[in-house]
Each structure stands twice: as C-alpha cells, then as structure tokens.
Design a protein around this nucleic acid. Structure first.
Lengths: 229, 229
DNA sequence: ACAAGCTGTCATAGGCTCGTAACATTGCAC
DNA sequence: GTGCAATGTTACGAGCCTATGACAGCTTGT
C-alpha cells in the first residue's frame, strides 16, 4: 500500500528532486509551494506524512505545523521538517510545535527516505489496522479499547488519547509541551503541569496490571513510554 | 584522522583554489582534470569523498559518477557534484546516478567544506538517528537513554549530558573549562572542581558494567573518554 | 434537576540533583 | 623519601522538579 507524502517547499528544484526520489521509493507524492496550497491539498486528500520546509513565503513552516496540529483533520499527520544549515538551533521550537522529526539540508535522499520510513513506522503501529501492541498492552483503535493481556482496561478519553500516542510513539522522550501539542491538539491552552496529572492518572489506571512502569519520567526532559524498565 | 578528498575538475584555477581551501581545513587532497585521470587516482588510493565537476572534457561528470557506482571499489565513495548555475534541473539525473549532494557554482569554500563534512558525517554511520555507540556503550538521543550492552543505565540529567558529550567527542582530552563550556553551557559560573565530582559520579554509574575505565584522567590536562584502556 | 464521570488547576509533600567544601589519595619533581 | 600540586571521595544543605490528593467547574446520561 503506497504512502502519500505531501511535500511543502517553495524551491521547485528541491521539490522535484525529493518528489522524484520518493516516487522511486514507492511513495505517492503531492506538492505545494506555500502554506495555503498545502492546506488545500490536505483538505482534498489527507496525506500519510508531510515534509515541511522551515522557510516558506508567507506563513512559515513552523506556523503551518502549529496550525495543522490544531485541526482535527491534520492533527495525526506526522510532520518532518526540512531545515537549512544553521537553523538547527531552532530544533527546540519545532519539537515543541509537535514536529516528529528533522532533516537538515543538505540531505541525501537515502537519508530522507530512511527518516520517512522510520516516522511512518513509529506512528502507525505497523499494520495500519489501528491495532497497536507493546509488551502486554494492546490498544484497539477502531474499537477505542485497551487490553492488558486479555482483560479490558477501563480508561477515560484523555488518558486514552495519551496512551494511544505513547503506544504509537514508544521509546522516545516527549516534553510536556510536545505532549500537549500531540495529545491535546494545541488549540487549547492548558498548564504544562496538567500533563503531570494525566500521567499520574494513566499510571493509576495501569496499576492493577502492574504496567505503570511503562510510563517513565525523564527528569528535566519529559516522559517516555517503554516496554523495558 | 585526515580525510582524503579527490577533486575532479578540468579548470586548474578552481581545482587549486578548492584544494588549498580543503588542505587548510585539514583534509588531504588529490586532483584530476578528467575522468580517466580520476579513475587512475582512485585505483591508486581510494579517497573518502569525491568532488566531481558536472562538465568534464570527454566523459561527463555524470557519466563518471554512474561508472563509479558500478565498480565495487568505488561504489561506497560519497560524491558531491559541482554544477554551474542553470544546471540545477539536472539534479534528478544526478540523484539517479547516486550522487550524495550538490554544490552550485559559484560557491564559497566555507559552504563547500560544510557540505563535505555533512556528507562525510552521514557516510560514517551517523545516520542522523541520534544514536551513538562506543564500545559496549550505546546512547539513544531521542529516547534520552543509555544502554550498556542491552541493559538500560540509570543516569541523571547532568551525567547524561556529560556522557553524551564524551560519546560524541571520544578519544580526545578536554580541560575542565572546556567541559564546563560544552556540557554546562558557558553562561553559568561553577567551580572547575565541580567537574571532578561529576566525573566521579559518571564513573560510579558506569561501575556496575565495569565501564568506569572509559572515563580517563589526563593529569594536568583534563579528562578523556575512550573505548580502550 | 440530579448523579456520575472527567478535567484542569493548585497547594503541598516528597525526591532527586547539584554545586561546594572539606578531607583523603595519588603523582611528580627534586 | 619529602612535599607540593592535582585529583579522588564523601557528605550535605539548597533548590528544583515531580508526584499526589483535593476541588470546583463541566458534560453526559438518566
């Protein structure tokens, strides 16, 4: 099943180059030269992943990323930022905006494709059925249910979204701001500390199955979901 | 360890200028004015990277690139193409031929060197995934985690940053002042002896895996991180 | 309208880290 | 071997970060 990648980049030569490489790698591509076109393209057909240039005429890539995170339609789409050399220092900002990964120009298409595949793999639990499994935990997306072993786990809406995000993005640290962007959606303003509370609640719901250790605190950085202690 | 760069360019003045800049940047250079000479040079000593002019008398740079990709000996050598303005549209062809990057003339030597370093870095196992490995130690940047073999190593924030710096800059001595600058970030003032304490703490966290000898004292100079005793 | 379930915020408690100072050791020059 | 300088160790109080429980406002279902 071919993945659809939306390339948002104002420089035509780079856009074409990337599009060519991706098609050769068996992906479908759509292109946009600016934020407006990008949003129209998304409205028309939701891509599986967005490659987003940092510098865009008009609305910057970062702004567009933030905006996409606020829309229900586009919140779940993974985003990879393309940044020029020297813009690396802004990584932090991008990560806070809920960007999934970065590729620094100049990049080889091989590297780019590897990253794309990595992000797609991460954010899809692999089989596209909506089922994700990690350790003894299993989450059934379509059914909106969580299982520990065979037993169903009672869980509230926000905790469910949080857990779902963690299950689809395991083994990686996320700051409170990132979690807010990915799980809450950025359109709402809530205190960062609120994340702590929901982490606590998630741990508590996992306690009966002794799985609370999967939610790990990384002091000074954020939280991580992992199968290994 | 100096990298060897082969410059394939018919215009002698450009060739010399580039060679001069690269040597100043601590790289070794070899030169060739045409495809035939280039292949002989490679046969004699395999370079770490090839700078290849797009336009060459006789066999074009693109053809040479294709040819090099077919040879077992030269298949893995990264290639950077030098193209004149207006030739950008041909990027696609270059990609197809397995070119790693492009630099458009006229270029500054600083840019060229940056590109070379970026490509070399990528070709050396730094795949941009944020994973660093040295001896039995492995550090996973995105996950913010350290492993000794397969076991996770519990580690605090500062020790983590210190270890991360060491892992990315191994086999080299750093004074306490340098470590403060790189790990603590020059804007804070702390006693130099504080470094000693953190070195001690780092060694202690590595002790359970008998890896404490990787952190080595260089009396009168500072500390060094190394895989060999 | 009422009950039950959720959520975001706060205040407080609890732990963990960090930078220093003080003291112990080691290495080196003479 | 002596003595000085550099490094190793340990202990500790302050400060920072997280965990936790309580609470009032909301939403949903009855």
């Amino acid at each position: 099943m071919h993945k659809r990648i939306l390339i948002v980049e104002d420089e035509a030569s780079i856009r074409d180059m990337v599009a060519f490489a991706l098609r050769k790698a068996g992906m479908d591509t759509a292109q946009a030269a600016d934020a407006r076109t990008a949003q129209m393209s998304i409205a028309e057909q939701v891509p599986d992943l967005i490659l987003l240039d940092w510098m865009l005429p008009g609305t910057s890539g970062l702004d567009l990323a933030r905006r996409l995170r606020k829309e229900e339609l586009s919140r779940e789409i993974p985003i990879i930022m393309l940044t020029a050399r020297g813009e690396e220092m802004d990584r932090v900002n991008g990560l806070e905006a809920g960007v999934d990964d970065y590729v620094v120009k100049p990049f080889s298409t091989r590297e780019l494709i590897a990253r794309i595949k990595a992000v797609l793999r991460r954010s899809q639990g692999d089989d596209g059925s909506g089922m994700v499994e990690l350790g003894r935990l299993r989450i059934d997306g379509p059914a909106h249910r969580v299982f520990a072993g065979d037993e169903p786990v009672p869980i509230g809406p926000t905790e469910y979204r949080l857990l779902y995000f963690f299950m689809t993005h395991p083994e990686r640290v996320y700051s409170r701001a990132q979690l807010l962007d990915h799980v809450w959606g950025g359109s709402v303003y809530v205190e960062e500390r609120t994340v702590d509370v929901h982490i606590r609640r998630l741990r508590k719901t996992l306690e009966p199955w002794k799985l609370e250790d999967m939610v790990q605190t990384v002091r000074g950085a954020g939280y991580r979901f992992s199968a290994s202690p």
